[in-house]
Simulated scan of single mutants.
Amino acid sequence: MSHDHNYQTGNYNRAFAIGVILNVMFVILEAGYGVVAGSLALIADAGHNLSDVLSLLLAWGAALLATKPATEKRTYGFRKVTIMASLASAIVLLGALGGITWEAIGRFFDPKPVQGMTIIAVAAIGVVINTITALLFVSGRKHDLNIRGAFLHMAADAGVSLGVVVAGVIIMVTGWLLIDPFVSILIVAVILIGTWSLLRDSMNLALDSVPEGIDVAGIKKYLTGLENVSQIHDLHVWPMSTTEVALSVHLIVVDDSWSHDFLPELQQQLHDRFSIEHSTIQVERPDDEPCMLNKNECI
């Protein structure tokens, strides 16, 4: 039985390209006007958008690598690169947040004058660009950690840019300069929430934890409930990439009465019912030599 392992990169090549181009242009615009207007909020948002560009490039490159065929040296190909890209993206973003926080704290003790109208105009452009970019990835956010990361980054950016617009209005009305570093800290807090989730999920996948949404208890119940199966052991479920899940298991059968299409049907059921793309199943008989992996530390 074969499944499509093409990662569906082609569906998102255009989305990645458009997202990168739009955000690079906006980063240059926002950073430039942030310096001119003396606004840390704009510069902070530009720095975050730059990290998003890097994240998009990482995700795009990883998606392309994931389509390369397996070799004798890399028997799973480069699928795992997608997980590494998600992890790297989260780490880069955390570093950027640390720099923004440090600068914002300094501004609380030494407020700088800013140009409210410039902040409003530039941030409003950011709302539009980030919303457009987020919509490019909305359809794939539930099926791929990389796509989800891209969507969350862009959606958060749209909200953050809207917050910067509000900050510009408040500065124009009240003249309160502390609102600029205050909004910068809020930006960091909002982004940190999404980044922590991305870091946690990426780390779990990097450690071959069971991917979110995979029902291991349901899989065990299904396998042990199969006709002619008396016991299972050495069950493992792990991510091959941000989109594909693998499983291996040993089944002890009562006798040799199972049909020749038993394994293909079992693989198909694991795919359809539990989203297992790649399953490896070893069948054993009760009178076989004891399996060296049938022990307490094996599930």
Rank of each mutant, 00 (worst) to 15 (best):
G34I: 04
F108M: 08
H278P: 09
P239C: 01
F26D: 05
H5T: 08
P181N: 04
I232C: 01
L56T: 11
E289C: 10
I125W: 03
H250K: 03
I232E: 01
Q8R: 14
D180R: 00
E103Q: 09
L198P: 04
A134C: 07
A62W: 07
A46T: 02
S209G: 15
L50G: 03
V114S: 09
F137H: 07
M172Q: 09
T9D: 10
A17W: 08
P264N: 10
L207P: 06
G95E: 14
Y222W: 06
V35Q: 02
L93Y: 11
L87G: 04
D272F: 14
A104I: 03
N146R: 11
V138W: 14
Q267P: 05
V210N: 11
A121K: 08
I185N: 09
N146Y: 10
A123Y: 01
L198A: 12
L93T: 09
Y76E: 14
A15N: 10
V166S: 00
V24K: 10
D256T: 12
M292G: 12
L270A: 05
G95A: 14
H236R: 15
N146G: 14
V173F: 01
H48C: 02
A155Q: 10
D52I: 12
A156C: 07
M292E: 15
S197I: 05
V165P: 00
K73V: 14
P264W: 03
A167K: 02
T280C: 05
A31E: 08
A15E: 15
G10E: 15
P264V: 09
G116T: 04
I129T: 08
A150L: 03
P286E: 12
E72M: 14
T133D: 13
A167G: 07
A96G: 08
Y33W: 11
A88I: 13
A217I: 08
I219A: 01
Q282A: 05
V165C: 00
V128Y: 11
L251C: 08
W258C: 13
E265A: 08
H3L: 15
S39A: 07
Y7S: 10
V216N: 06
A59Y: 06
L247C: 00
V245R: 13
I232L: 05
F151A: 01
K73E: 11
V210L: 06
L192Q: 07
T9P: 06
A59T: 06
H5W: 15
L136N: 13
A156D: 05
C298A: 11
A123P: 06
L198H: 08
A121L: 15
I91R: 02
A88E: 13
S279Y: 05
S202R: 09
Q231R: 07
G34Q: 05
S248K: 04
K112N: 15
T131V: 03
I132Q: 11
A121W: 14
T243P: 03
